[in-house]
Simulated scan of single mutants.
Amino acid sequence: MRIANLAGRLVLLTADGRAADVAAVSGGRFAADPDRLFDQWDDLLEWSASLDPAAARPYDEADLLTPVPNPRQVFAIALNYRPHTAEAGYAEPAEPLVFTKFPSCLTGPAITIGLPEGNVDWELEMVAVVGRTAYRVPVENGWDPVVALSVGQDLSERIVQLAGRPPQFSLGKSFPGFGPVGPALVSLDEVADRDDLELTCELSDMVVQHDRTSNMIFPVPRLVAFLSAICPLFPGDLIFTGTPAGVGNRRTPQRFLAPGDVLVSRIEGLGEMRHTFRAASGASAHR
């Protein structure tokens, strides 16, 4: 199942690039509200297997919104790929390094994002989507609360992020539009190998990041076990699982996002996001 938020309504995306409105096609069996998604996840997953492709219609990608509009918690992991840890000049962490992105930064997979003043950087990440309440999950069961994966970008304004001692990670990564997720939530049954997916990030047609999720220092089960040992996890929580090497502030010379840039974020089996950037003029990116 590839489920998305199209102009505020739940839809299933088909392989041929169309969308089926869940509430309409199911005759009202399922709610159209994306905030109701995880209340009906298991039944919806079963029902989606019988969807008639003829029920799907063409759609405008610009109408896709963030698939989970109002998560209770958005976790993010720093330094979770060895080459990125090395390029940042740090030793490999012994435990996951956790910060948060505030939910107001979440946005859709195909919008134009306003750039605040400063140095805005890209960070392609796989996002693990929690679908079941979980607390103190053992690592061997770490995949159990996760129902889907998606593509994410942990956009970061480096001046705010690195200001102060300790740095302001969460603020620097939570400007409006700094948490793109999409284009859909892909249920795990559609993912060929959930532990080994190719990630590719392109900036204006140049590949800037390329790796595989199998190279994470802390794979998804370890992250779920670590987080849930402290915080209960709730349906709809998002875990940005870390970024590979190739970010702009570690390049020589440094390279940051500029008006007119096009950023393509792609993960094998999960889809692709495409964002254009403009100078912020007081307006915020739309959720």
Rank of each mutant, 00 (worst) to 15 (best):
F30N: 01
H275Y: 11
G114L: 07
F178H: 04
D39P: 00
R36G: 02
P71A: 13
L257Q: 03
F226Q: 00
A94M: 11
F175V: 03
E87F: 04
D16A: 07
G282R: 08
V139T: 13
S156K: 07
A55N: 02
R165L: 10
G271I: 07
S187P: 00
V220R: 03
P93E: 03
Q153K: 01
R250M: 14
W41S: 00
Q254Y: 02
N70S: 14
R251N: 02
D144P: 01
P183K: 12
F240R: 00
V247N: 02
G28V: 03
E125V: 10
A229M: 05
A128T: 08
E198Q: 13
F169I: 13
N215I: 02
V207W: 04
D205T: 11
T200D: 01
E61N: 01
T107P: 03
V129K: 05
P69E: 12
G28Y: 03
F175H: 08
R132Y: 11
G114T: 09
R255M: 05
D121K: 01
M206N: 07
I113C: 01
Y59S: 04
L6R: 09
V120A: 12
V68H: 08
L162W: 13
E123G: 09
A19H: 10
D42A: 15
A94F: 05
D196S: 09
Q168T: 02
D193C: 03
F169Q: 03
D63L: 15
F256V: 07
E61R: 12
A91Q: 13
G28W: 04
D121N: 09
L149Q: 06
L233E: 02
L65Y: 11
V220E: 03
L162A: 12
D144Q: 09
V120E: 04
G17Y: 12
D121P: 10
P103E: 10
D154G: 10
A163D: 13
A62Q: 12
V262S: 04
I3C: 09
V129C: 01
L12S: 00
A7S: 13
R57D: 05
V22Q: 04
G242P: 00
C105Y: 05
V181Y: 06
L51M: 05
D16Y: 03
I113M: 00
I267Y: 04
V25P: 01
A78S: 08
R132E: 13
A245S: 14
L227R: 06
G89F: 13
V160S: 06
E61S: 06
M126V: 13
A110S: 14
P83F: 14
S50P: 00
E268W: 11
A258P: 00
P232Q: 10
P235Q: 07
A280M: 12
G248W: 10
N70T: 15
L263H: 01
E123Y: 10
L106P: 00
S50W: 12
G246N: 06
G248P: 11
A86S: 06
F99H: 03
V151H: 06
A23C: 09
E157S: 10
G142R: 11
L115W: 08
A32H: 12
G271H: 06
G271Q: 04
S228N: 05
L65C: 11
A88R: 07
L199V: 11
N215T: 06
